[in-house]
Design a protein around this nucleic acid. Structure first.
Length: 718
DNA sequence: CGTTTACGTAGACTG
DNA sequence: TACGTAAACG
């Protein structure tokens, strides 16, 4: 292992080796064997990968012999287009995500696993639909059982169990103990889910990886062929890979061991879906002879931002030791603002952005980051009211919208007639057809013929005489079943058919119809329907607004901001319950990930960083509550953050870190801690304590721990 | 009988 | 919010 690499002796005049610092050049210029690059935020990780691609091409490798695996397909495309400026062949390098790689392999060779080549890739929402159907089919749920896990929770448990590679009972106990009593049912549902997917030739995200692994693991000839094909493997964002992805790297590179993985343990933010920090730590053991390169010189942020981010991550529990430094001195101290409420927060951001724009900063150099998709809702309203153009990244996806799914389902049943879930969906769109009748129609079709003949069978059903819309559906499907028809024409035909249905179905059809208009331009890029359907699910396309990012301020979830950077960054809701998010507050491991999330957010900033946390918040459920500053920003060296006085902040709010139990409160505490109380809705409960001046913590037998506002709670002491 | 509609309540994220 | 349940409707 080489912590501080010596200067490289690469061939002079090589474009791939010029313009790099010593560590970068060392990593880029290694000729073969396993390489682990630990690259802190802003240290030129992408640059290193880009130059590495160019270097390998300079060494005479064909572009088809290089495989670049990244976190999104967009990232791969951007890296390859940058590499192309150094080497013309770079555009032909194969790149993509683990999921897209496995998808391609399974389309070509899935037969070996009994997977038909026209299988359909399903997303999370599809999985939930199937799970719901399985629960109904197996009659596992007693009527009126309100505790029974919802399809969403079930899908979550099943997927997590697979990604963590932990048994279902253990997963439930560890991650969803409230469902402990339902473990047998959950296991039955998981089994039914597998069967339903197989029956319909459906493959979910997790299946892609595990089946890809199976293909490579159990078929040595496939493994050998791929090892011959890709002589060099480059993997970005290695800290966010899970166990099966690490094994895929092993299977792909096991023979030649020409593999470079790049990652930053401090930026691991996907543990919630099975990412393992250990993959980085274990890499040198899996690949003996690994050369380790650490990149610690930061080229992105100015010193005060770096000081703050170093301090935030310094408190993390386990990490590769590294300390980022920069030679860009100066720059303003990061600011921490505590506006009174969410509205005040939005106003502060607005004001900050307007000041920047007035100073000549281009809007696309500014971003507002937040933990969860709807943390920005109030800000969006304010921005729109002020006429400030912005794009929002992350949160609800284009493809998850029901009208998009409706339209695509018509294409899906043509691509894969066994996709009964999509059949059900398109049948239920017709007036008078509910779940029961749709089921009957599907059953009749299945009885009448084998999968390729379903459309004809549908046309000949007696029911068509009573429901003319069914006949129209059959006509549409017949038309788009024509294999010579392009995906574009098929999509246009579907939209023409679907438009009146959409109008009838949704109040807000103008917006939905506008979004549907984006489908044809997507379809145009594909040669076959199956390909179109799969790609669109694997890498949901950026919405049109997103592509028009130029000239607009960016609003983004922190997860979606990974790998990106802006001159000026605002982080809103840096507050307990938001960042860190509520559900993580009692889970130390999850909290560590929240810390890294704050770290990722702050390290996106080049020149200025503003953190905001309202002091109070009004929500319907809880009324007016005090908001505590994000714990990772407390107890920092006061020299790291500028905290401007804002209104009567310090006169009214108690110091944020003062625990509620301490101090000289003299407010009323009408209910004794430990005593019994009764609540109109929640019933009997036990007083656990008080939170601040205004709230009481009560544990209710049936509803768990509640935080109630004393003013409104109407509790009765017993 | 199955579909539609109205209502109340649990649960909320990140890809 | 959005989902699941219960009652009304065709």
């Amino acid at each position: 292992m080489t912590p501080d690499p010596p200067p490289t002796s690469g061939s002079p005049g090589s474009p791939a080796l010029s313009g790099l610092n010593e560590g970068q050049a060392f990593a880029v210029g290694l000729l073969g064997g396993p390489i682990l690059v630990i690259a802190g935020a802003g240290t030129g990780k992408t640059r290193t990968l880009v130059h590495r691609v160019a270097f390998l091409l300079e060494q005479g490798l064909a572009p088809s012999q290089i495989l670049l695996l990244t976190f999104t397909r967009k990232a791969a495309a951007e890296m390859l287009s940058r590499a192309r400026q150094m080497h013309a062949n770079a555009a032909a390098v194969e790149g993509g995500t683990f999921h897209s790689l496995c998808h391609r392999l399974l389309r070509q060779m899935g037969r070996r696993l009994d997977l038909p080549p026209n299988f359909t890739v399903i997303d999370r929402a599809d999985s939930e639909h199937i799970i719901k159907a399985v629960v109904e089919e197996l009659k596992l749920k007693d009527k009126g059982d309100k505790q029974f896990p919802k399809p969403r929770a079930l899908a979550d448990i099943i997927s997590r169990s697979r990604n963590l590679e932990l048994g279902l009972p253990e997963t439930v106990e560890a991650l969803a103990p409230q469902y402990e009593d339902y473990i047998p049912q959950v296991m039955g549902i998981a089994k039914g889910f597998v069967a339903a997917k197989r029956r319909q030739a459906l493959v979910d995200y997790d299946d892609l990886l595990f089946m890809g692994e199976e293909l490579l693991r159990d078929h040595p000839e496939v493994r050998r062929e791929l090892a011959r094909r890709w002589r060099h493997l480059l993997v970005d964002e290695y800290q966010d890979t899970n166990a099966v992805q690490a094994r895929l790297v092993m299977l792909l590179a096991g023979e030649h061991k020409n593999v470079m993985v790049v990652g930053d343990d401090a930026q691991s933010i996907y543990a919630f879906r099975g990412a393992r920090l250990q993959n980085i730590l274990e890499f040198p053991h899996k690949f003996p002879g690994t050369r380790l390169v650490k990149l610690e010189r930061n080229y992105r942020s100015c010193q005060p931002i770096l000081d703050l981010t170093n301090a935030i991550i310094a408190q993390a529990r386990e990490r590769y030791d590294k300390h980022l430094y920069t030679e860009q001195g100066g720059g303003p101290l990061p600011r921490l603002l505590r506006p009174r409420d969410e509205r005040g927060q939005s106003r502060e951001v607005l004001k900050g952005v307007q000041d920047l724009l007035a100073a000549g900063v281009a809007p696309e150099r500014v971003a507002v980051l937040f933990r969860a998709g709807n943390d920005s809702s109030d800000l969006e309203v304010e921005l729109t009211a002020e006429g400030l153009a912005h794009v929002k990244v992350g949160g609800l996806r284009f493809l998850e919208a029901s009208h998009i799914k409706d339209a695509l389902s018509h294409l899906r049943v043509v691509a894969n007639p066994q996709d009964y879930m999509s059949w059900q969906r398109i049948l239920m769109l017709l007036p008078g057809l509910g779940p029961k009748k749709a089921q009957q129609i599907i059953a009749a079709m299945v009885r009448a013929t084998a999968p390729p003949g379903y459309v004809v069978a549908l046309k000949n059903l007696p029911l068509v005489a009573q429901v003319p819309e069914l006949g129209e559906l059959a006509l549409l499907l017949e038309a788009i079943s024509d294999p010579t028809l392009s995906p574009l024409s098929a999509t246009e035909a579907v939209l023409e058919y679907y438009e009146p249905l959409c109008r009838a179905l949704y109040e807000d059809h103008p917006r939905r119809l506008r979004e549907l208009e984006e489908l044809p331009s997507l379809a145009r890029n594909y040669d076959s329907l199956a390909e179109f359907m799969a790609e669109v699910v694997l890498e949901p396309p950026a919405s049109r607004a997103e592509e028009q990012g130029a000239g607009r301020l960016t609003l983004s979830t922190i997860h979606s901001a990974k790998g990106l950077e802006w001159d000026h960054v605002f982080v809103i809701w840096a507050a307990e319950g938001r960042l860190p998010a509520g559900p993580t507050l009692h889970d130390p491991t999850a909290l560590e990930e929240e810390r890294r999330l704050l770290y990722v957010a702050c390290t996106r900033a080049r020149q200025s960083l503003t953190l905001l946390a309202p002091r109070e918040h009004y929500s319907r459920g809880q009324g007016l509550t005090q908001v505590r500053l994000c714990r990772f920003l407390e107890d920092l060296d006061p020299g790291l953050l500028e905290v401007p006085r804002m209104g009567p902040v310090f006169d009214v709010a108690p110091p944020a870190q003062a625990p509620a139990s301490r101090g000289s409160q003299r407010q009323e505490r009408p209910y004794a801690v430990g005593g019994q109380v009764r609540h109109a809705t929640f019933g009997l409960g036990k007083v656990m304590g008080y939170k601040g001046d205004s709230k009481i913590l009560v544990h209710f037998g049936r509803f768990g721990l509640k935080v109630l506002l004393l003013e409104f709670a109407k509790l009765e002491a017993l």
